[in-house]
Write a protein that binds this DNA or RNA. Structure first.
Length: 769
RNA sequence: UGGGGCGUCGACAAGUGGUAAGUCAACGGAUUUUGAUUCCGUUUACCGCAGGUUCGAAUCCUGCCGCCCCAACCA
């Protein structure tokens, strides 16, 4: 286990912030109950892993629990095969749902009685429109829909009809139970969505017990509710559904009402994530199955040899937010390498062998080298016996007849070190009739064995090798990215997007003997090649098959101009630099120049006041209430627009506990120098909360502003003394430090220092250099 | 054209009125019997754009631009 490295500090993403807030307010009594609710109609993938890590991780962090729930409301699509694979995958990722394994289908009976409750309340009705009719009458995003002719059926009739549906007296599609909400609702989801449909189908769990099945929106909130979920976390596309989620639970009596929270699902570059496309890859035979090591499925990653730890680390590193974004696959690869680096013992293997004969090695002699399994910076002990002889295989790629510039490997007449062994010199190249190199005849420098006295002779390169007589044959499967384009979803077709070289099967490779005796599930590094492990399905003793989990970084290959293995096609989708600049410049009305005659503010600001009678009355009231000539209408308007309106949070201004005269008084405190604008904000909030007058708040909180230099100077000097370096930087032209220093003085004064005076003093000090 | 969301370095992502975190990538350099790892350092992100408020704005206000989601008896 690679747990000795300090865990990355977890960031407080917005969901953790919500939970922290709930725990402070006691909203759920300190409980955190989450759930992972997959539909058992496909295999889980890395995108689900993000959600699993989030839900189970949160529960673990906060000492709560996370349920695993099969969202099996659609009998025609779901299958037990999937419920098993899902459980296996979640468990493999390292999470435990304990007793809390559920099926939405367990709640069907309760859901239908909730449906009856809604029917009786006149909140649901049985509708006989066909699918097409329903679509046609739903309206569009800009036009309202038209009500169903059955919308006003009496509750008792609806109840009778609904019971007929449930009893199986009606054929598929004959009618549905619909929520009675509003056919003109701006949120399309609220336009009387169907809750229950008729499906005479065999369900993988409830068998033929039901012939009606609830739809997602109705089923999901109730499943969460009956399980006592507190935080129902789902992906962004369900944001529109939240209103419906809340509607159902608000309209049912005495039900628990979880909070739905949406976050951005994972998108990965060079990867497809949709079930449909993944299924197509399997069906079209582009991959060998759901667990093909190139697949982003959990099963595929597992078979490739990726560890659960690296997936969890990845989930933590990408964070959780609401911005729709695409994580570059390099980040995932980095997590995989990082985990394997400290986990995998190092061994030697040759993928494409080239014979090397050591001409001066004693005939038939075999030397057993004691070779360390770990590099110097992995704090682990251990070595294995590595047989060395006069007949070896090296990697074909490690020899070049005409070496390019910067070549560190073997070339005619050149020297390299054989890892853990000797330095050899290539004396002779044997080629066949076609000119292909078939053998190298080399001489070995017998004084240079690793660890021996004279071993420190330096040569440019070190290469891997195996002894021909001891080499164990193996098949290597070299996997790389399935797609060669960054955004395969945007590609026209597979043909164009698929990487033709995503799997290279190398038969005739050789591994050192120790590789055959490692535990079956051990992750290994074949030095200079990558991380591997034995394929769990196909590798057998005597017929070894190793999957490459991930290659090593290769700065040599990357530096070679032509050979760059990286993407051939790049579909760039920078949503930046679109011309937004130009467009806005054309459409913007300049606000700076013209001021509104009575209010003295830019027209655009005045418009806010003018267009809303309520605001206008308030502003005018404030202006006329205060005879103090130091207060201009502009000050009032700015205070109202920029501070009061947002603080009021949409409440009618007339109901505010700060009346126009009070607001004018507040402005007066600022112009009079009693408080700063910053403090004014605080006072405003207090007035709104408690109904006190501004002056009373200032008095109670002791906010009176410090403006005299006599009390300010010592504070400024103290801060400057403490931050000498910052003052120097400020003098050097880093004006941002001005804000920092002023802020420090303000903090020291408990917020009472007059900021503009402080700023002047700091500027003076800086100028005094 | 209605409603719901989202725009901070090449990629993720903190930050919620007082010096724009961190990670990956990239680029240098050191160490290295893996062209790996490790370690150091670098890349001036003026925070979608434009105005406004403020001593001070990524953060507050206004307008605009761009992207995503919603019109399955799928989830």
């Amino acid at each position: 286990m690679s747990t000795d490295r300090p865990a990355a500090p977890e960031s407080v993403h917005f969901i953790r912030a919500i939970i922290d807030q709930d725990n402070r307010s006691g909203k759920w009594g300190g409980q955190v109950v989450t759930r992972f609710p997959p539909e058992p109609n496909g295999y889980l993938h890395i995108g689900h892993a993000k959600s699993i890590c989030l839900n189970f991780g949160l529960a673990r962090e906060y000492g709560g629990r996370c349920h695993l729930r099969m969202d099996d409301t659609n009998p025609t699509k779901e299958d037990v095969e999937y419920v098993e694979s899902i459980q296996e995958d979640v468990r493999w990722l390292g999470f435990d749902w304990g007793e809390h394994f559920y099926f939405a289908s367990d709640y069907f009976g309760r859901m239908f009685s909730y449906a009856e409750e809604l029917i009786l309340k006149g909140k649901a009705y049985v509708c006989f429109q066909t699918e097409e009719e329903m679509r046609a009458t739903r309206g569009t995003v800009t036009e309202p829909g038209t009500p169903s002719p059955w919308r006003d059926t009496a509750p008792e009739d609806n109840l009778r009809l609904f019971r007929q549906m449930c009893a199986g007296e009606l054929p598929d599609g004959h009618c549905t139970l619909r929520a009675k909400i509003h056919m003109g609702h701006a949120n399309m989801k609220m336009r009387d969505l169907p809750m229950v449909r008729i499906r005479h189908a065999h369900h993988h769990r409830t068998g033929d017990r039901f012939c009606v099945y609830p739809l997602y929106d109705f089923a999901h909130c109730l499943s969460d509710s009956v399980e006592g979920i507190t935080h129902s976390i789902c992906t962004l596309e369900f944001e529109n559904n939240r209103e419906l989620y809340d509607w159902f639970l608000d309209n049912l009596d005495g039900v628990h009402h979880p909070q739905q929270i949406e976050f951005a699902r994972l998108r990965l570059s060079y990867t497809v994530m949709s079930k449909r496309k993944l299924l197509a890859l399997v069906k079209d035979g582009q991959v060998s199955g759901w667990d093909d090591p190139r697949m982003p499925t959990i099963a595929g990653l597992r078979r490739r040899g990726v560890t659960a730890e690296s997936i969890r680390e990845f989930a933590e590193r990408i964070g959780v937010a609401k911005a729709n974004s695409t994580v570059s696959v390099e980040l995932f690869e980095s997590c995989i390498r990082d985990d394997l680096n400290s986990r995998a013992p190092r061994l030697l293997a040759v993928a494409r062998p080239l014979k090397v004969t050591l001409t001066n090695w004693p005939e038939g002699q075999v030397e057993e080298l004691d070779a360390a399994l770990w590099p110097h910076d992995v704090p682990k002990e251990g070595s294995r016996a590595l047989p060395f002889s006069g007949s070896l295989f090296i990697e074909r790629d490690d020899f070049a007849l005409t070496p390019p510039k910067g070549w560190h490997r073997l070339a005619p007449g050149g020297e390299v070190r054989l890892r853990h062994a000797y330095i050899i010199r290539c004396d002779e190249v044997v080629q066949d009739d076609s000119g292909e190199v078939v053998e190298l005849r080399c001489s070995v420098d017998l004084d240079t064995r690793s660890g021996s006295a004279a071993a420190d002779r330096k040569v440019k390169g070190t290469i891997h090798w195996v002894s021909a007589a001891h080499a164990v044959p193996a098949e290597l499967r070299l996997y790389s990215r399935l797609f060669r384009v960054e955004d395969p979803d945007a590609a026209e077709s597979y043909a164009e997007a698929l990487n033709p070289d995503s799997l290279e099967i190398v038969r005739g490779a050789f591994v050192e003997p120790a590789a055959a005796t490692m535990p079956q599930d051990a992750r290994l590094q074949f030095e200079r090649q990558g991380y591997f492990w034995a394929d769990p399905k196909d590798s057998k003793p005597g017929a070894l098959v190793f999957n490459r989990i991930i290659s090593l970084k290769d700065s040599w290959a990357k530096a070679q101009p032509a050979a760059a293995p990286a993407p051939l096609l790049r579909v760039t989708t920078t949503h930046k630099d679109k011309m937004t600049g130009i467009k806005t410049m054309l459409s913007v009305g300049k606000t700076g120049s013209t001021l509104h005659p009575t209010y003295g503010v830019p027209m655009l600001v005045a418009k806010i006041v003018l267009e809303n009678q309520e605001v206008r009355d308030y502003v005018d009231g404030a202006i006329w209430s205060e005879p103090d000539p130091a207060i201009t209408p502009a000050m009032i308007v700015n205070m109202v627009v920029n501070e009061l309106l947002p603080a009021a949070k949409g409440a009618p201004l007339a109901t505010l506990s700060l009346n126009p005269a009070g607001l004018a008084a507040l402005v007066g405190l600022v112009t009079g120098g009693e408080i700063s604008t910053k403090q004014a904000k605080e006072v405003l909030a207090e007035c709104l909360r408690g109904g006190e007058s501004p002056a009373a708040v200032v008095k109670r909180l002791g906010l009176s502003q410090l403006s005299d230099d006599a009390s300010l100077k010592p504070l400024v000097d103290a801060v400057l003394a403490e931050h000498q370096d910052k003052l120097i930087e400020l003098r050097a032209g880093n004006v941002r430090l001005l804000g920092f220093l002023v802020g420090q003085v303000l903090k020291r004064s408990g917020g009472r220092a007059n900021p503009s005076r402080v700023q002047a003093l700091v500027e003076e000090a800086a100028a005094r250099a």
